[in-house]
Design a protein around this nucleic acid. Structure first.
Length: 555
RNA sequence: GCGCCCGUAGCUCAACGGAUAGAGCAUCUGACUACGGAUCAGAAGGUUAGAGGUUCGAGUCCUCUCGGGCGCGCCA
């Protein structure tokens, strides 16, 4: 029995109590969600629910009395071994061993699809993240989003959503020109202009550009730096794509800001906003009245000199996404952009959408790096800038991704490079991966012993050891973890869950011998435990896949 | 000045309004001549920054104070 099935059984028990007249409650007062959770304390059974505490007040009686009414009816349900009323009115449910054990079989049978749910079936989601200028390498700030954004996309997919990962290329405007002029300057051996780009990578790209086409130096005037700009753009963008590819983060759409303008999307976007009546003119400029929807000031779309603002691109881009059929547009932005939240939400509202439904702006705090006990200051001046590439070179893709994903993004994160580099259990990713490798080893050994556990008849009711039931219970949690992680857009919950699961496996392994000892026959308990191992391995693999982290058979 | 985020063990951090606030690291003590010791068992470590409030119940929600990070252009 899965936790969801138990929740349904509890609901039925509650409804029956109402129908029997034992409980004075309107059907409408039954909560939409019945919370079933695994108690921290094993004495509290396999599962616990607080439903009695929730409905006691509207029912006009005490929580414990309600709990008793539900308990009596729940005990009749097949697979339920016992139901206790505890504390202020919690219901503690214990399943019988066979019912719990069968979970192992169903997980192994489900394979890679275990953990997938249909909560967001039919929902099209656009997840936009990183969206850097193509004027330099991706740095540490981008890296957090590369890992977390991709994990959010994976979790949403597991929850049934149709997800597109999108990277908005800021390839238009003054910064690009400065980039071109900086490249030109370095190629000519002069200093980049005021506000230009510095660092070794600028020299590298300049060299590459000249090497690819030496005739570029024969150009003059703006033609020359524009040519450097275009050639450098192509190289830098490709470099970003390659690095992200190596980071196991693959974008479905690379959306160029230039394309947005050349395609007429900007005009269409402005037209849409005018239709809804939130555009006005003042002081020779065109404005969007975002203050109609919680923004603290109105925003300029077209400057009095006729030029479009960056904000105009933003609005058009949003409208374009919606026109492409996305129900939800998720933006992942750094904390230094949190001032954009209200205006982006206002854009959605001005376009006639519901900002609470169609747009979602997630703000992530910045990452700090410690090395040798000191903070590594991040600066675009090359020397101490940490790039995504640097991080991966130092600690590897799995450790880098995992370390960035395992913390909620709304709190600032401090990473200690020294700890990450050491391949010890200081980094929990190894703890989780080790559990997977350990199981893989056991299963290999079973094969070497000629044990065909999947083909044998197994009595899974033998899995009654406290460590076995604890492990089974946690294995059963994956679908619900996917549910909360996807709903809250918090993939760190998956990582935390995997650590718990790995811990439960190690504890089980420590006291429960899986394979028969030397010269011993294969007993039913060996087969049952192999099923448990198979289920645990599959759950770890599926969970790690949600994070884009590998599940190695050997380490 | 206004706004957003944060403040939990020595350190890095968990905890969809639930039961005795949990892990890892660091410190101390233990455990295999059988499946991977990158493991497991145990000890120690807390006024959840502070003060009020909401309710059966608050680290979590509301108000205020203190402390830290960030943001407030017809810039991109």
């Amino acid at each position: 029995m899965t936790p969801d099935q138990l929740a349904t059984a509890i609901r039925h028990a509650l409804v029956r109590a109402i129908e029997d007249g034992a409980l004075a409650l309107e059907p409408a007062q039954v909560p939409a969600e019945i919370t079933v959770e695994r108690p921290r304390n094993p004495d509290h059974g396999d599962y616990a629910t607080n439903i009695a505490l929730q409905v006691a007040k509207p029912a006009g009686t005490s929580p414990r009395a309600v709990a008793e009414l539900i308990a009596v009816r729940l005990r009749e349900v097949g697979g339920v071994a016992s139901v206790d009323v505890a504390g202020p009115g919690f219901l503690n449910v214990t399943l019988d061993a066979a019912t719990l054990g069968e979970l192992a079989r169903s997980v192994v049978v489900a394979g890679e699809s275990y953990g997938r749910i249909d909560r967001y079936a039919g929902t099209r989601v656009n997840v936009e993240f990183i969206s850097a200028n193509p004027t330099g390498p991706l740095h540490l700030g981008h890296t957090r989003w590369a890992a977390v954004g991709d994990a959010i996309a994976r979790v949403l997919e597991a929850a049934g959503a149709e997800v597109v990962r999108e990277f908005y290329i800021n390839d238009r405007g003054l910064q690009m020109d400065k980039f071109g002029m900086s490249l030109e300057a370095r190629a000519l051996g002069t200093e980049p202009p005021e506000g230009g780009y510095h660092g070794a990578y600028v020299d590298d790209i300049a060299r590459q550009v000249v090497a690819a086409d030496p005739s570029i130096l024969e150009l003059t005037g703006p033609d020359r730096w524009a040519a450097f700009r275009e050639a450098g753009y192509a190289l830098q963008l490709q470099q970003q794509k390659d690095v992200l590819d190596g980071f196991n983060t693959h974008f479905d759409v690379w959306y160029s800001e230039r394309t947005l303008h050349s395609s007429g999307a900007v005009e269409r976007g402005l037209a849409r906003l005018r239709e809804h009546g939130h555009v006005f003119e003042s002081d020779g400029a065109v404005w969007l009245r975002t203050t109609d929807f919680d923004d603290d000031k109105d925003r300029v779309l077209v400057r009095s000199n006729g030029e479009l603002t960056y904000f105009a691109s933003d609005t058009a881009y949003y409208v374009d996404k919606r026109d492409r059929g996305f129900d939800v547009c998720i933006y992942l932005l750094g904390a230094d952009h949190h001032g954009y939240v209200n205006r982006l939400r206002a854009v959605a509202a001005c376009a006639g959408d519901d900002p609470d439904v169609n747009i979602e702006v997630l703000i992530g705090q910045l990452v700090k790096m410690m090395k040798g006990g000191e903070e590594v200051r991040l600066s675009k001046r090359a020397g101490n800038m940490i790039t995504l590439e640097d991080l991966v070179d130092e600690v590897g893709v799995d450790a880098a991704r995992y370390s960035l994903i395992r913390y909620p993004v709304d709190s600032p994160l401090t990473l200690d490079l020294d700890l990450l580099v050491s391949r010890s259990n200081d980094n929990p990713v190894y703890y989780v991966q080790y559990a997977h490798a350990r199981i893989a080893s056991v299963l290999r050994n079973a094969g070497d012993l000629g044990i065909d556990w999947r083909g044998a008849t197994a009595d899974l009711s033998l899995l009654t050891h406290e460590r076995e039931t604890a492990l089974l219970g946690l294995i059963g949690e994956l679908p619900r973890v996917v549910g909360t992680a996807s709903e809250l857009r918090e993939p760190h919950r998956v990582a935390r869950y995997l650590e718990e699961l790995a811990n439960a496996y190690h504890k089980f392994y420590d006291v429960c011998r899986v394979l028969p000892g030397a010269d011993a026959d294969v007993e039913p308990i060996n087969v049952a435990r192999l099923w448990l191992c198979g289920a645990a391995r599959q759950t770890l693999e599926n969970g790690l896949a949600l994070l884009g982290v590998s599940a190695p058979d050997r380490m």
